[in-house]
């Protein structure tokens, strides 16, 4: 399973990012969420949303094996084992692997909790089986 997004449906409200920070850190702080919303205004007038595809590239390079897989197949960061080495961040093809040392003493990423989907009024986000690439 993974999170999917249709950016054309996003209205840029950021409810998903608040819900995400509440799940990850028990905090109201969208700066500590695992989704990225890029507004493009005044023109061309659209949002681009970046979400984790659960590709696992981050886990492959983690020297402390802090990025683990749960029973749903979602990769998550075990905060206690992250040493902030930043190896994972450049590996992420979507730019949704985060380290901001001033905000948290761990890396963080999407753990597929689904709270973002639950607060999205425009149905821009959903969770589904990972589609295998067709040649």
């Amino acid at each position: 399973m993974r999170l999917y997004v249709d950016s054309t449906k996003c209205s840029g409200c950021n409810a998903c990012r608040v819900a995400c920070s509440l799940n990850l850190f028990d905090e109201n702080n969208p700066k500590k969420s695992a989704l990225v919303i890029e507004p493009h205004f005044p023109s061309p007038g659209m949002y681009t949303v970046k979400v984790c595809t659960q590709c696992g590239d981050c886990a492959k390079v983690c020297p402390t094996e802090a990025i683990k897989q749960d029973e749903k197949g979602a990769y998550y960061v075990d905060f206690a084992e992250c040493n902030l080495c930043e190896a994972c961040v450049p590996e992420c093809p979507e730019g949704v692997m985060f380290i901001r040392a001033e905000l948290a003493d761990t890396a963080w990423k999407c753990n597929l909790c689904g709270d973002c989907v639950n607060v999205c009024g425009t149905s821009a986000l959903w969770i589904a089986e990972i589609e295998t690439a067709t040649a």
């Binding site: 209205s11 409200c13 005044p42 009024g121």
Partner: peptide, 25 residues
């Protein structure tokens, strides 16, 4: 051209428009 919501809004009333006639947003 798109819906544009305020913070935390599940029912965005904000509409973002492009006028072809005036080439403006």
């Amino acid at each position: 051209i798109t819906d544009k919501g305020c913070f935390g809004c599940p029912s965005p009333c904000g509409k973002y428009s492009r006028s072809k006639k005036y080439n403006s947003y």
